[in-house]
């Protein structure tokens, strides 16, 4: 056989092998992380995790109740503040300002904020909220999360609204609907599953965020519902427990990590299923 041909074939096979190895490499990490998480997290997962508060140093009983509830409150409030803002902003970009100079500037800035380091958001909220309020507070944590939610929701909202066929809008306008109702009754409805996907993805993104909470909401050892004091939350609790010398704290950190990961993965998969339904239609 032609030696040049043999050489090309051999090169091709080597590169194919490397690509398959790369894919195996990527999937292996996910499997490894999930397996160690399940192995270490399940061992400590029991009812006590959900009903008892975080233990003091050295204690061998206690759970994560205050941290779980704190995380829920802050995530819900953060998404509750950020998602409407992102939704409206995305609406402006897709519906009103399609050929606007302002739109392209905002889209560009938004894309940068989307990937900006979350610890910088923490520093921003520290300077803008914590310092004027003279203290760490749960509300500062919520605002930090909201700032992270906005770009995610804005991006998906704009993309999804742009997918709605213009004929729908024109038909509604022809029937006499004012512009705002065309958007609210027609465009939102047509893009509904896409919009929900965006909010789910944003929730998944902030549910495990740690860096922006480190010096906004801080964390504490107690059960507290007050928004202007520090509030316990899972990510920062894990952060503190991992670096502690106590075995039980480390055990709790693994269980907390498992809870967060399962929640985030469930949200991500849910968002993807919703998105897939949309494209299948």
């Amino acid at each position: 056989m032609n030696p040049i041909y043999v050489r090309r074939r051999r090169k091709d096979i080597v590169v194919r092998g490397l690509c398959i190895a790369a894919a195996a490499f990527g999937v292996t990490w996910l499997a490894l992380i999930l397996v160690t998480l399940l192995y270490n997290g399940l061992a400590g997962l029991n009812l006590e995790i959900f009903v008892a508060d975080t233990p003091p140093p050295g204690s061998t009983e206690g759970g994560l109740r205050n941290a779980i509830i704190g995380s829920l409150i802050m995530t819900v409030l953060g998404v509750g503040i950020g998602a409407p803002l992102g939704l409206f902003a995305g609406t402006y970009l897709a519906e009103y300002g399609r050929n606007d100079k302002l739109t392209s500037v905002i889209r560009f800035i938004n894309d940068i904020l989307l990937s900006a380091p979350s610890i910088i958001i923490g520093l921003f909220i520290y300077g803008a909220v914590v310092v004027p309020m003279r203290g760490f507070s749960a509300i500062a944590g919520c605002l930090a999360l909201a700032v992270i939610v906005i770009p995610v929701v804005l991006r998906t909202t704009e993309d999804m609204l742009l997918l709605v066929p213009n004929a729908l809008r024109e038909a509604a306008s022809a029937l006499g609907l004012p512009r705002s109702l065309v958007i609210k009754r027609i465009a939102y409805r047509a893009a509904r599953s896409g919009l929900i996907t965006g909010v789910l993805l944003a929730t998944a993104r902030v549910a495990g965020e740690t860096a922006p909470l480190l010096f906004t909401a801080l964390s504490n050892q107690f059960f507290s519902l007050s928004l202007n004091k520090t509030m316990a939350n899972l990510p920062v609790t894990i952060n503190n427990f991992v670096q502690s010398p106590y075995a039980y704290w480390k055990q709790l950190a693994w269980s907390g990590a498992l809870l967060i990961t399962l929640t985030v993965l469930a949200l991500n998969i849910g968002a993807r299923i919703l998105g897939a339904e949309r494209t299948a239609k």
Binding site: G26, L30, L32, I33, N40, G208, V242, A253, I260, T261
Partner: peptide
């Protein structure tokens, strides 16, 4: 495989840190 790689992107960074620290 595409989904597995994208789920890898969804795992919160503190989980990576913790996993790196212990494992």
């Amino acid at each position: 495989i595409g989904m597995a790689v994208e789920l890898l992107a969804g795992i919160p960074s503190i989980i990576y840190g913790m996993w790196g620290f212990f494992v």
